[in-house]
Design a binder for these strands. Structure first.
Lengths: 185, 185
DNA sequence: TATTTATGGTTAGCCGCCTAACTATAAATT
DNA sequence: AATTTATAGTTAGGCGGCTAACCATAAATA
C-alpha cells in the first residue's frame, strides 16, 4: 500500500495495489506525477543548496536576478518597484516587503522613494549585490547544466515537450492557477 | 536577456543570448531545468489548491497519509511516533511538532505518550481524520490523473525514464542531498 | 554502578510564504 | 471640485519550514 506524496516514492506495483481500493487512482498518472514532483524537488535542492552557501534563498535570488536583468536591459530603469518585483518573482507584495527588508539589511539592494509617484518605492541593486551575483552565477549555471548532463539534446527537447503538455493541461484545469507562459521577457 | 528562475519562463532565444555572457550557461540544460521546476510547480499548485479547500496543507496531508497507510498495513502499529512521521514525510522533528499541534487542534489526529518508551509520543488518526481523507482522496487522485491525461502510456513511461536519469544525476552530484529512491514502502 | 553517548520531542528564533486590513497616494468618476 | 475607486507598500497574524539548544529518557560504555 503506497504512501502518496511522501518523501520516498512508491513502487509502481504498490500503485497498482492502491488502485484496487481507490478507483479514481490512475497508476501510471500517479507514478508520473509523483516522479515529476520528486525530481523537481531534487533539482531545486541541488541548486538551492549552493545558493544557501551564500546566504541566498530562492526568493532573494529571484529578486536579485530581476534587478540584474533590469540593469542589463539598459532601458534607463535601473531600479524596480516592489510591486514590479513581486509580479516578476511570483510572490505577493506583502512577501516582497520582507524580502527587500532582509536584502537591504544585508547591503545587497537599496530602497528609495520614487520621485514621480509618492506611493511607490524603487529598489536597486548595490555594487555588493552585483558582485555577489557574479560570484554565484557561474557555479549556479554549472550545477544546472550538470543536472541535465545525462540527457542528450533530443532527450531534453522531448522532456520539454512532455512538460509543456502537462502545463497546458494544468492551465486548462484551473485557469486562475496557471501562469502566463511563455512570457515575453 | 532572460530572467532566470523567475515566474515567467524565458524563451529559448533569450537563453542563447545569455549564454554569450555567461559561458557556464548551457541553454538547453537551462531550458529543461526551468521547465521542469515550472511544471512541477504548476502541478503542485493544481493539487494543493484542492487540498487547501479542506484546510489541508501539503505537510499536513503527508502526515495524514502516513498515518492512513500505517493503519492499512495492519501490522498492529496503528500509530506512529513524531520522529517516524518526520522521517516519512521528509521534515525535521521540530517541524513535525508544529504539524501535529495543528492537526491535533483540528481533531484529525490524537497524541499520547508511548507506554514502552517514555521519551516518545504516539500519533494516531482519528475517525474524523480518516473520514476527511476519504472525502479528499477521490478528487485528489482525479486531479492527478487529469494533469497527466494529455500524455499517453508511452509518454508517461518516457517521462518517468527521463526524470529518473535526472534524479540519478542529482544523487551523483550531492549524495547528501539525494533521498533514497525507490524506497520500499 | 557511574558516566557518557544517543535518541525523542519541544522550544525559541529566524525566514519566507500567505491573507486581510490599513494608510497614503493617484486616478477615475460624479 | 468633491467623491469614489484603484494602486502601492506595509503591518499583523498565521502557517510551515529550518537550526540550535534544551530537557527527559534510553542505551552504550567504562
Amino acid at each position: 500500500m503506497p504512501l502518496l506524496m511522501l518523501k520516498n516514492l512508491p513502487r509502481y506495483e504498490c500503485l497498482l495495489e492502491a488502485a484496487k481500493e481507490f478507483p479514481d487512482l490512475d497508476p501510471s498518472a500517479c507514478e508520473a506525477f509523483l516522479h515529476l514532483l520528486h525530481t523537481g524537488d531534487e533539482c531545486f535542492r541541488a541548486v538551492e543548496s549552493q545558493l544557501a552557501r551564500h546566504n541566498i534563498s530562492q526568493g532573494r535570488f529571484g529578486v536579485l536576478m530581476s534587478l540584474l536583468n533590469n540593469c542589463r536591459n539598459d532601458d534607463g530603469q535601473a531600479a524596480l518597484s516592489p510591486a514590479g518585483l513581486a509580479d516578476r518573482t511570483g510572490v505577493t507584495r506583502a512577501t516582497m516587503t520582507g524580502l527587500i527588508d532582509t536584502l537591504e539589511r544585508d547591503g545587497l539592494v537599496t530602497r528609495a522613494h520614487d520621485t514621480e509617484d509618492r506611493r511607490m518605492m524603487v529598489v536597486g541593486l548595490t555594487l555588493r549585490g552585483r558582485e555577489l551575483l557574479h560570484e554565484i552565477l557561474p557555479d549556479h549555471f554549472k550545477r544546472m547544466a550538470m543536472l541535465m548532463q545525462s540527457l542528450d539534446e533530443a532527450e531534453r527537447k522531448t522532456l520539454v515537450q512532455l512538460l509543456n503538455k502537462i502545463t497546458t493541461q494544468a492551465a486548462a484545469m484551473a485557469p486562475a492557477v496557471a501562469s502566463s507562459f511563455p512570457a515575453a521577457v
